Simulated assay, not measured.
Amino acid sequence: MAAFISIEGTDGSGKTTLMKALKSVLQDKPVLFTREPGGTDFGNATRDILLHGQKIDPISEVYLFAATRRQHVVEIIKPALHKNVSVISDRFLDSSIAYQGAGRGVGEKLVEDINRSAVEGLEPDLTIFLDIEPQKELDRVHNIRTDEVNRLDNEALDFYERVKGGYDRIIEKTPNRFLVIDASQTEELIQRQALSAIMNLI
């Protein structure tokens, strides 16, 4: 049976590393890997504006993310699920609630309401959250990270503390959807826990 799985966490938590490992292990399975913002031509074009362009109004940022997410859902995620292909996405709606709603201070409920209509109520069957303390996250981003660095990575510690608080509240509201993994563990342990949960669904 096809499942929709999202991978969440603050920048520096190890999402990219986990996604690469899962792609390698699940390459022979009917699984589609995608990401947000991105996944579609529109999403990839908008990604550059959102992550590398000039600073934009926080509400405008919310609507841009929602627009790319809707296109992602209608063009990529739902068609794959209808074909019985599981989808694993690097980020989904929770990211906007945590980053724009809590981090930017736009309001978590407002961001959720805007995005719920955009995704037509679609929710992951499982969300794997890589849990890391904000200070350790920033240390990783600035000292270790070798993949894409974007304008969000230059935010101050208090921004990431608000983002982490946003994620914590989402998990508290919907604990049955989440597998919370300690991101300070070794890559092998993280991958093993994530893969075990995924294989129980697909």
Rank of each mutant, 00 (worst) to 15 (best):
A2E: 11
A2I: 06
E8V: 10
K15Q: 11
K15H: 11
L18H: 13
K20F: 09
A21G: 09
L22K: 05
L22D: 07
K23P: 11
S24W: 10
V25H: 08
L26W: 05
K29Y: 15
P30I: 05
F33I: 02
T34P: 01
E36P: 12
G38W: 09
G38N: 11
G38V: 10
G39V: 06
T40R: 11
T40E: 12
T46C: 13
D48C: 00
I49C: 07
H52P: 14
H52C: 15
K55I: 14
P58I: 12
E61V: 05
E61G: 06
V62R: 02
L64C: 06
F65H: 04
Q71D: 14
V73W: 10
I77T: 03
K78A: 13
K78H: 07
L81V: 11
L81P: 11
H82Y: 14
K83P: 12
K83S: 13
S86M: 07
S86E: 08
I88T: 09
D90N: 03
L93D: 04
S95C: 10
S96N: 12
Y99V: 00
G103L: 09
V111A: 01
E112A: 14
D113G: 10
I114W: 01
N115Y: 02
S117H: 14
S117W: 14
A118H: 06
V119D: 00
V119P: 01
E120M: 07
G121L: 07
G121M: 03
E123L: 05
L126E: 00
L126Y: 00
I128S: 03
F129D: 08
I132P: 00
E133D: 11
E133N: 07
P134Q: 07
Q135W: 01
Q135R: 07
Q135H: 05
K136D: 08
L138T: 11
D139P: 03
R140V: 09
H142T: 12
E148F: 06
N150Q: 08
E155R: 11
A156K: 15
L157T: 00
F159Q: 13
Y160C: 01
E161H: 02
R162N: 12
R162A: 11
V163S: 08
K164R: 14
K164W: 09
G166D: 02
G166I: 01
G166N: 01
R169C: 11
R169I: 12
I170S: 04
E172M: 14
E172S: 15
K173L: 14
T174I: 10
P175I: 06
P175W: 04
R177N: 00
F178K: 01
F178D: 02
L179D: 07
V180W: 13
D182H: 10
D182W: 07
D182P: 09
E188P: 04
R192W: 10
R192T: 13
Q193F: 10
L195H: 01
M199C: 15
